[in-house]
């Protein structure tokens, strides 16, 4: 574990100016409005592992994905790739080739006017990796085979494929520059379940075979459990809990994490009444003071409303970080017994 992580993120933040146009703003007499999409988060991803970020829409997880590959410059903090500041790393083709991204929407992530072979070969050409048309063709064929498509599919256009097949093409494109680090932004959420399983299996196989490191973004806790080594739970632009996958699922500590798990409809729960979390996610333009979860939290007190909790080792746990005053003070009833999820619940 002494090895340096492939990716480190330190106090990363990204703010967006969502003010109305200047003239309207002046006429209405309002100030500038800032959306704090990501508001000071830190994590590291060791080589060959998967870190997942989960959260509901608007929690900033996709913004993190885009910050990490340099699509947005950070407003604060920094991203360190292989010990090198991201901006410097991205300026070097050899470093840039080592990070790739897979997107959510298989219908928008492939240029509809390009043939599949050109889509897959784009990174190869951009990095001048395989000179010669014949060698390139062979490489594309190999990549298509690797993701479970036929080399003949290269001649087709994206619209001739189903959603799952398109996602395979996306993966082939991402793999074509021999990357070490893949950012996967909701890679299966636009897919049907049976196809989702295909893609998740493929991604796991590829990780095992090629030693890839993943940053996996998802809103689906069950999917995240299948692929992750560690999981970060995000709420309103902040990490509220960061723990090894098994620890998070067996002993979730943050009240939001627990609420999320409670809320998920589980197949085994046929007939059981769930306890929904009250309230809705507040707007990230005017987030609540103190802990962002406090308006919905059952354990809220005055300190939660005033003071922002830091992400610190959770009390009475060997592993895992939690940003919660209640956990820190032991007001949460201590380490929960195995959560009542899944099979244990059907016994009722």
């Amino acid at each position: 574990m002494a090895e340096t992580p492939i990716l480190e993120v330190e106090d990363l933040a990204r703010y967006f100016d969502v003010s109305r146009p200047w003239l309207q703003r002046v006429l209405a007499g309002e100030g500038k409005r800032t959306l704090r999409a990501v508001d000071g988060i830190s994590f590291a991803i060791p080589r060959g592992t998967t870190l997942s970020l989960v959260g509901e829409s608007g929690c900033g997880k996709s913004t993190v994905a885009r910050l990490v590959v340099g699509l947005y410059p950070p407003s604060k903090g920094r991203v360190v790739f292989e010990g090198m500041d991201l901006e410097r790393a991205r300026a070097i083709a050899e470093q840039r080739r080592r990070m790739q991204m897979i997107f959510q929407d298989p219908y928008a992530s492939l240029n509809p006017r390009w043939r599949v072979k050109d889509i897959v070969a784009e990174p190869i050409r951009a990095f001048g990796m395989t000179p010669g048309a014949a060698a390139q063709q062979a490489k594309v064929a190999e990549l298509l085979t690797q993701v479970g498509l036929s080399p003949l599919d290269g001649e087709k256009f994206p619209h001739e494929f189903s959603g799952g097949q398109r996602q395979r093409i996306s993966i082939a494109r991402a793999l074509s520059s021999n990357p070490d680090f893949l950012v996967c932004d909701e890679p299966t959420s636009a897919l049907d379940v049976s196809v989702q399983a295909q893609i998740l299996n493929l991604m796991k196989d590829l990780q095992a075979r090629l030693g890839l490191t993943y940053l996996f973004i998802s809103h689906n806790l069950a999917v995240v459990r299948q692929v992750s080594d560690r999981i970060g739970v995000m709420y309103l632009g902040r990490l509220v809990e960061l723990a090894p996958a098994e620890t998070l699922f067996t002993t979730p500590r943050h009240p939001y994490t627990r609420a999320l798990m409670e809320a998920i409809p589980d197949l085994e729960m046929t007939g059981r009444q769930r306890i929904p979390v009250g309230g809705e996610v507040p707007s990230p333009i005017s987030p609540p003071s103190g802990c962002p979860f406090h308006p919905r939290c059952p354990l809220v007190n005055d300190r939660c409303k005033a003071e922002r909790p830091a992400l610190i080792p959770a009390r009475a746990m060997k592993q895992g970080l939690t940003a919660c005053h209640a956990v820190e003070e032991g007001r949460d009833g201590g380490v929960p017994a195995a959560q009542r999820i899944g099979t244990t619940a059907t016994a009722l």
């Binding site: 399983a197 998740l200 999917v223 459990r225 098994e246």
Partner: peptide, 15 residues
């Protein structure tokens, strides 16, 4: 093929 929430499986069943 529905990923289970309560356990990690090495290989999801797929169609």
């Amino acid at each position: 093929s529905i990923p289970p929430l309560d356990r990690k499986v090495e290989h999801l069943a797929q169609i």
